[in-house]
C-alpha cells in the first residue's frame, strides 16, 4: 500500500500528466490567426503548410519561416515529380543579347496564366542569364543545348533544375526547361534577333520574352537592318532549312519533261508550303523571294535559329 505522502505524490503526477495530455491538443488549435496570415503573406506557401509550420514551432514565426524555406525545395521536387507527366504546351522563350553572342531559351508550363505570371517570367529571365553565361563555345559559333545540359547548369550555386522545382512547388503547375540555342558574333558577321510576343512586347531585365524568337547571322554589310527584317521573316514564315544560295540553272528540257509527266499523271499537286528560307516569298515585300531580295542587297545568310514556344518537335 502507498503511504499517504506517496499517494499524494502519485496523484499529483497523474494530474500533471493529465494536464499535459489536455494541453497538447489545445495547443495545436491555438494557432495565432494574425501570425498565420502574416506568414502566408510573407512566404506565399499553401495555407495548410503555413499552419503546419506554426504548429510545429509553437507560433514562432521566424523559425517557421526558415523551416518552410528549407522544406520548399524538397516539396518542390516532390510536386515536380508528381506533375512531370502532365503536358505542357504553353510557356515563354527568352532571348538575351550582348557584345559576344545571342542566346535563346524555351521554358514550358501548362497554362498561359502561368506564362503571364511575374514569378514565371522572373524564373525565365534567371535561366536565360545563367544559360548565356555558361554556354560552351563551338567552332562554327552555333550551340544547341537540350534540357539535361541546361538543367545541370548552376546559377549562384543552385542548379537550374532546383530553381524550376522551387517554382513548381509554389505555382503548383508543371514547368520545365526545354532547349536553348546560342549564336556567337565574330568580326565578319552581324547577328540579329527578333522576339514576337502574342501581346504587347515583354522585356524583363533586358531580356526579351515572347512566344517566338529567331536569331540570324548575316555577312557584313548589314544594309538597312536587313538582318532584323530577316529575323522577322523567319519567325513569320517558319523555314526549316536554308536552301541553295545559288540555285542550279533551270534546264528547259527537263522542265518540259516534268510538265509532260505531270499532265500524264493529272493529279493536282498538293499545296506545298515552301520550307527553304531562300526560296520563300519575303514577308515584308512579297514581290521578291528572300534570295532575290538578298542578292539585291548584298549580304549572305550564314545561319539561323528559330524557336516557337510549344511547337511540335516530333519527340514524345
Amino acid at each position: 500500500m502507498l503511504s499517504g505522502y506517496n499517494k499524494i505524490r502519485f496523484m499529483r503526477t497523474v494530474a500533471q500528466n493529465a494536464r499535459l495530455f489536455c494541453v497538447q491538443p489545445n495547443k495545436q488549435v491555438a494557432v495565432d490567426k494574425a501570425l498565420l496570415s502574416k506568414l502566408r503573406k510573407k512566404t506565399g506557401y499553401p495555407m495548410i503548410n503555413c499552419k503546419k509550420a506554426l504548429v510545429q514551432f509553437d507560433n514562432d514565426i521566424k523559425e517557421a519561416e526558415t523551416w518552410m524555406r528549407e522544406q520548399a525545395q524538397k516539396e518542390g521536387w516532390e510536386k515536380a515529380g508528381k506533375l512531370q507527366d502532365r503536358p505542357m504546351s504553353q510557356g515563354l522563350v527568352g532571348l538575351i543579347e550582348d557584345d559576344t553572342s545571342v542566346t535563346v531559351v524555351e521554358v514550358n508550363c501548362e497554362t498561359d496564366f502561368v506564362a503571364k505570371n511575374e514569378n514565371f517570367q522572373a524564373l525565365v529571365s534567371q535561366i536565360v542569364k545563367a544559360c548565356h553565361k555558361h554556354t560552351p563555345q563551338s567552332d562554327n559559333g552555333k550551340v544547341l543545348l537540350d534540357n539535361n545540359e541546361i538543367n545541370s547548369m548552376k546559377d549562384e550555386d543552385v542548379t537550374l533544375s532546383d530553381k524550376v522545382a522551387l517554382l513548381v512547388g509554389k505555382l503548383g503547375e508543371n514547368i520545365a526547361i526545354r532547349r536553348a540555342a546560342s549564336i556567337s558574333k565574330d568580326s565578319s558577321t552581324v547577328v540579329s534577333s527578333f522576339v514576337h510576343a502574342s501581346g504587347p512586347p515583354m522585356v524583363k531585365d533586358g531580356i526579351k520574352l515572347g512566344k517566338f524568337a529567331a536569331i540570324t547571322k548575316v555577312e557584313i554589310p548589314d544594309v538597312d537592318g536587313i538582318a532584323k527584317e530577316l529575323c522577322q521573316h523567319i519567325v513569320g514564315m517558319n523555314p526549316t532549312e536554308m536552301g541553295e544560295w545559288r540555285p542550279k540553272p533551270i534546264d528547259k528540257k527537263e522542265l518540259k519533261k516534268k510538265k509532260k509527266e505531270k499532265e500524264e499523271n493529272k493529279s493536282r499537286p498538293e499545296d506545298k508550303v515552301e520550307q527553304r528560307l531562300l526560296d520563300q516569298e519575303f514577308l515584308l515585300d512579297s514581290q521578291f523571294t528572300v534570295r532575290s531580295y538578298l542578292h539585291d542587297n548584298a549580304p549572305k545568310v550564314e545561319d539561323f535559329v528559330r524557336m516557337e514556344c510549344g511547337e511540335d518537335l516530333g519527340e514524345d
Binding site: 502566408r40 495555407m47 495548410i48 496564366f113 502561368v114 503571364k116 509554389k170 505555382l171
Partner: peptide
C-alpha cells in the same frame, strides 16, 4: 482550393 489559398496566378485569372 481552400488548402492552397489563392495562387500567384489567381491574379491573372481576375485580370482575365
Amino acid at each position: 482550393a481552400a488548402n492552397d489559398g489563392t495562387m500567384p496566378q489567381t491574379r491573372e485569372h481576375l485580370l482575365l
